[in-house]
Write a protein that binds this DNA or RNA. Structure first.
Lengths: 248, 248
DNA sequence: TAGTGGTCTAGACCACATG
DNA sequence: ATGTGGTCTAGACCACTAG
């Protein structure tokens, strides 16, 4: 069942992407849209709210809404899963487990994941044949068995875990910064030691807020860029001083 | 005038931060909250929606809401303005214009900013006495005069422009990646050539969607981290392949 | 001053989660 | 089966923008 406001949002988004409402132009008023779609004003507002959070449309009390841009954002799955992202964008991709072992959790990991034992996995992922990403992931013990069952060249861990144990990754927190490549990073990614890497550390939880994994992902410089839209009303991005809340 | 839903959101947020609703616990139902605050259910939902976009609370049809975390996010101003961010976090900060000149816009800049002439400014910013950020900002011609009037050591360009010409920065798009320090970067930031820098490129517009500035900001590695919370329902962050939509 | 978006209400029905 | 959040309506009033 697709909600009415979603269909309205889809139509409006289409109208923006196809130039019916060009960038910089005004959107029709809520009253007009409500009449056009035979919906209550609240429903139209809900549709527009989607476009606002996507950054396509700007909003401001008393003034007509303005079309800000045409770029669409990705789904959570596309950000979370390298495979789903690569596939959605038409890239050739691959992956390989380099090392994988169970070990006792450090005190930080106990606090972060809530389990005494963890599964520690190092994966190298490729894009268009080139190594671009080194993933160091630590899984909570309650998913360890399911992860160990996966093939070493499993393309999408996210999808495999959903299929095998119904696991849904629902929430994430991400820390993004730059680091220099260590000896091992450099060797596996095929870059010089000390060269810049884009690092994304993240913790992912279930719908219940139960932590599933903690990961340190390092991208070769130039291979990917993170993009965010924000506004005076909605600001998902935060800048922090670099003493690194999550520890080293 | 503070909206009712904002006050409700503030109280709920307080209850989360102070542990009345600990992380991992369930939030009261909408009906309970509506009764407690003598508000309609829709108003309570609006309050909770704020907490959800802040990443404090998780939401899912049919199940009670869960408290996910206690970290608060920053305002747009705090992300946009180095000075406002540093001040809000209690850091000592400073800044200095290194070079500033008007020049003809490149074709990319014409497309991006919509003006034939631009003002090109290079600023070095310090945190706790250390140089941490090198800002290369290109302003549209219609703000150039106001920028040129500012003192070279102006602490907050954002606030100064609001005071002088009532300019409000309302929307931003940000691209984040890692680059290695060039000779000039290295000298000004006090790092070795080739060492990693965290780069944030951004374009900022007014409420009307009119582009004001385009900036390439480079942080010394370790000085700042960007943080984002997302969920299966709301995903502000996007990963892109590194062919750099904004050009070099 | 007129128009537009922002807030709020009260109530209805549906979809989903959980026991 | 029950409870909970998700959707939708219809209407009212307020705050702000713009001519």
């Amino acid at each position: 069942m697709v909600a009415r406001y979603e269909r309205i949002a889809d139509e409006l988004r289409d109208d923006i992407l196809t130039g019916v409402h060009p960038v910089g132009s005004q959107l029709p008023t809520e009253a007009e849209l409500a009449a056009r779609y035979l919906a209550a004003r609240g429903t139209v507002r809900q549709a527009i709210a989607m476009l606002v959070t996507e950054g396509l449309v700007g909003s401001r009390q008393g003034a007509r809404r303005i079309v800000l841009g045409r770029a669409r954002s990705q789904s959570f799955a596309e950000l979370h899963s390298f495979a789903q992202w690569a596939r959605a964008n038409g890239y050739r991709y691959g992956g390989q487990v380099i090392t994988q072992r169970r070990r006792a959790a450090s005190s930080v990991e106990v606090a972060r994941l809530g389990t005494d034992e963890v599964l520690d996995v190092l994966r190298l992922r490729t894009l268009e044949g080139e190594p671009v990403l080194l993933e160091r992931t630590v899984y909570a013990s309650w998913v360890a068995a399911a992860v160990e069952e996966l093939a070493p060249d499993c393309e999408s861990v996210t999808e495999a875990l959903y299929d095998s144990i119904g696991l849904v990754f629902a929430y994430g927190e991400h820390l993004i910064d730059a680091v220099s490549a260590g000896a091992r990073d450099a060797r596996l990614l095929g870059v010089r030691r000390g060269s810049p890497l884009l690092r994304q550390r993240r913790i992912t939880t279930t719908h219940e807020g139960r932590p599933v994994e903690w990961s340190d992902d390092r991208y070769r410089a130039g291979s990917v860029v993170f993009s965010i839209r924000n506004s005076i009303d909605a600001n998902p991005l935060v800048r922090q001083a670099g003493d690194l809340r999550f520890g080293a």
